[in-house]
Computed example of a mutant assay.
Amino acid sequence: MPDPAVIRADSTKPFLLLSTRGEDVAAHAEHLSFAGTAGIAPAKLHQIRLEKGLPSALSLDDYSGIIVGGGPFNSSDEIKSGLQKRVESWFDDVLAEVLDRDFPFLGACYGVGLLGMAGSGSVSRRHGEEADVITIKKTAEGTVDPILEGLPTTFHGIVGHKEAIDQLPADATLLATGDNCPVQMFRIGANAYATQFHPELDADTFAQRLRIYSNQGYYQPGSDSAAVEAARRLDVKRSGQILRNFARIHVARRV
């Protein structure tokens, strides 16, 4: 576990959560889920809701690291709104700087497509997964990666996505895999990570999110109750160690 005194101290730089969820309830819950799971005080996790407006300038030096949650956009969407195109173009510039500087970054679900495309990989809908709890397996590289420290070789995580990595960037390191979706977690450089699963969710927040997105094609009608039951029965909260490790490793003091 991280030292809460360090992550909550006034002398530390905040982390930044970049959100694309248009629903106020979902965006607020996402902020609290990431902060609570990572062990960051909510006030030290600044949230920018990109669907409400794109920042004209963003200085990475103001933050300890960047976190990106899930959202309604898919890189493989055949038809994209003007907002989606603007958000994706904005992310192109941000992630180019993240990769150039090897800046701390952790993207969950939507972040997989963003980081994968930024690294010149590809995505498709071949490996989408309906909302469920799956078994995730660390690769040999994953067993020695500090962000996965404290997690067993296999652990459970919550998924629900329409697209996934089809081909990893040439310089990416595969850290975790799954039976139906081969790329569950990867890293580019030393500090930029993406997970296909949601380490910020537990059974209750999973149930809430399923209710919010009940009509958006993430699961078959009626299957949500079984997915939530699996989240209560299996230790999905353990995957949150990834966020705690990320925060602990990258918390930075002001200069």
Rank of each mutant, 00 (worst) to 15 (best):
L151I: 03
F155I: 03
D204R: 07
A140T: 09
L174A: 04
F206K: 00
D132G: 02
L175Q: 07
N191R: 03
C181A: 02
R187Q: 14
T143S: 10
F186D: 02
A192T: 09
I158G: 09
E163W: 08
I188R: 13
P146K: 13
E141S: 12
A164P: 05
L168K: 09
L151Q: 08
A131V: 07
A194F: 13
D179C: 12
L174S: 04
I158S: 11
E163G: 04
A190G: 09
F206Y: 06
K138V: 05
E200N: 07
M185D: 01
P152D: 00
T139Y: 13
D145Y: 01
T173H: 13
D132H: 11
Q184A: 06
T139H: 10
P152K: 08
K138I: 03
Q167P: 04
P152Q: 05
H156S: 15
D132Q: 10
C181N: 03
L201V: 00
P199C: 06
F206T: 04
A170R: 14
Q184I: 07
I188D: 10
E200R: 02
P199I: 01
G157L: 04
A164Y: 12
R126G: 05
K138F: 08
D171Q: 14
G157A: 03
A170G: 01
P146S: 02
A140R: 14
P169K: 04
I147Y: 12
F197Q: 07
G128F: 13
I134A: 13
A207P: 07
V133F: 10
D202I: 00
E163Q: 13
E130Q: 13
L201A: 06
I158H: 10
T195W: 14
E163S: 10
Q167W: 08
P199E: 06
T135Y: 09
I158W: 11
K137N: 10
A131F: 03
M185L: 14
R126E: 04
E130W: 02
T143P: 03
T205L: 15
T177Y: 14
D179M: 12
E163V: 02
I147N: 11
D166S: 15
P169H: 00
T173V: 13
Q184H: 13
P182T: 00
E200T: 02
D145F: 03
A192Q: 08
F206D: 01
V144A: 11
G157M: 05
H161A: 01
I147V: 15
Y193K: 05
V183K: 08
D145E: 00
V159H: 09
A131R: 07
T135F: 03
P152E: 03
T173Q: 14
E163C: 03
H198L: 10
V133N: 15
K138T: 09
A192M: 09
T177W: 10
G142Q: 02
H127Q: 09
Q196D: 09
E141T: 04
E163F: 05
